[in-house]
Computed example of a mutant assay.
Amino acid sequence: MSRVSSKTYPVKKSPVVVAHISDFHIGSYHFVANLMNRTIHELNELRPDIVVVTGDLTNEGFRQEYLTAKSYLDNLECENIVIVPGNHDSRNVGYLHFQELFGPLFRCLEYEGVFIMGVDSSEPDLDDGKIGREKYGWIVNNFQSTDGFKIFALHHHLLPVPGTGRERNIVYDAGDILELLIYAGVDLVLTGHKHVPYVWRLEDMYLVNAGTISSLRLRGHTKPCYNLIEIREDDVRVLRKYPFGGSDVIARFGAGAGETQRELSGVVREIISTDI
């Protein structure tokens, strides 16, 4: 059993709903436009307060891929959108197109007691990630300037994700970043990158990895999906939603959450059942 958290959150609206989508890979032959359109349609029906996009909008960072990605995102009816680039977006000097079409690589957004920081973890033409020591003070200072529910969003995951094979693409300075985030009182970290949804708990901070919403480049029996986060004063629920399908609660924390049972990921569970 995990520990019971007694934290409460000073949100001004209950719930504040955050949609977390990732890894479109527009331009790849694995990209499925029907899944992308369906996700946009579902989000417009669900009407989240904030949409967070954790990178790999494109497959090769080409301008036409970016323009296609923007045409999809322009159909979102949400006014509060935080977008960060992924490693695929920074290929072929694609980060220039990102900044022209979507704005700064590092940004903050505050809404009804929820504070979101989006950061660029990509390195041009590399699959590995890095935040960089020069950004550490900026990260801590911005988080310490708010007492709201704190979310940190980046493309690369900060902890290895089960079922993704040999770990090669973690953030180079992940240890430093994790220490900074815990010190700054961050509540939730949102990432993408490996197309495998998963949740980690590290002290009182949750790290939620998203799957892909529109690519069939999938591992094992994972399916295209995205996350919905419902933030209340004493309770936070993280749901996994499948385009054309239902949803499951994958994490719950806060003063009203009670105890939750840690479950094995689907991939690891399949390996164990095969070996027994």
Rank of each mutant, 00 (worst) to 15 (best):
M1Y: 08
S5F: 06
S5T: 12
S6F: 15
T8P: 01
T8Y: 08
V11D: 05
K12V: 07
K13N: 00
K13T: 07
K13D: 00
P15Y: 14
P15V: 04
V18Q: 04
H20M: 06
I21G: 01
F24T: 15
F24M: 07
H25M: 08
S28N: 10
S28H: 11
H30R: 15
H30Q: 10
F31Q: 03
V32P: 05
N34Y: 14
N34I: 14
N37E: 02
N44W: 10
L46H: 11
R47N: 03
P48K: 12
V52S: 03
T54I: 10
G55F: 13
G55W: 01
D56N: 07
E60A: 11
G61D: 06
F62E: 11
F62H: 13
R63L: 14
Q64I: 07
Y66K: 14
T68C: 02
T68Y: 00
A69K: 15
K70Q: 11
K70V: 07
L73V: 05
C78I: 12
C78N: 06
V82D: 03
I83R: 03
I83G: 00
V84K: 01
P85S: 09
G86N: 02
G86P: 07
D89P: 02
S90G: 14
V93P: 01
L96Q: 15
L96H: 12
Q99L: 02
Q99I: 07
E100M: 08
F102N: 00
P104A: 02
F106R: 11
C108D: 03
L109E: 00
L109G: 06
Y111Q: 05
E112W: 02
E112K: 10
F115A: 06
P124L: 13
D127C: 09
D127F: 14
D127K: 15
D128N: 13
D128M: 12
G129T: 01
G129P: 01
E134M: 08
K135L: 13
Y136S: 01
W138F: 11
I139P: 04
V140K: 15
V140W: 06
N141A: 12
N141F: 08
Q144A: 10
T146V: 14
G148K: 05
A153F: 13
H156K: 09
H156G: 01
H157S: 08
L159K: 08
P160S: 04
V161P: 04
P162Y: 14
P162A: 03
V171Y: 08
Y172A: 11
Y172G: 04
D176H: 14
I182A: 13
A184Q: 06
A184P: 03
V186T: 03
L188V: 09
L190K: 10
G192C: 10
H193A: 04
H195N: 12
V199R: 02
W200E: 05
Y206M: 09
G211W: 14
T212H: 02
I213V: 15
S215N: 04
G220R: 08
H221Y: 01
H221E: 11
K223F: 13
K223R: 13
C225V: 09
V236A: 03
L239Q: 11
R240T: 07
R240C: 05
P243C: 11
P243T: 12
F244P: 06
F244S: 06
G245I: 10
V249L: 09
R252W: 09
R252Y: 02
G254C: 00
A255W: 09
G256N: 05
G256T: 06
A257M: 00
Q261L: 15
E263W: 09
G266M: 05
V267S: 15
I271K: 13
D275N: 09
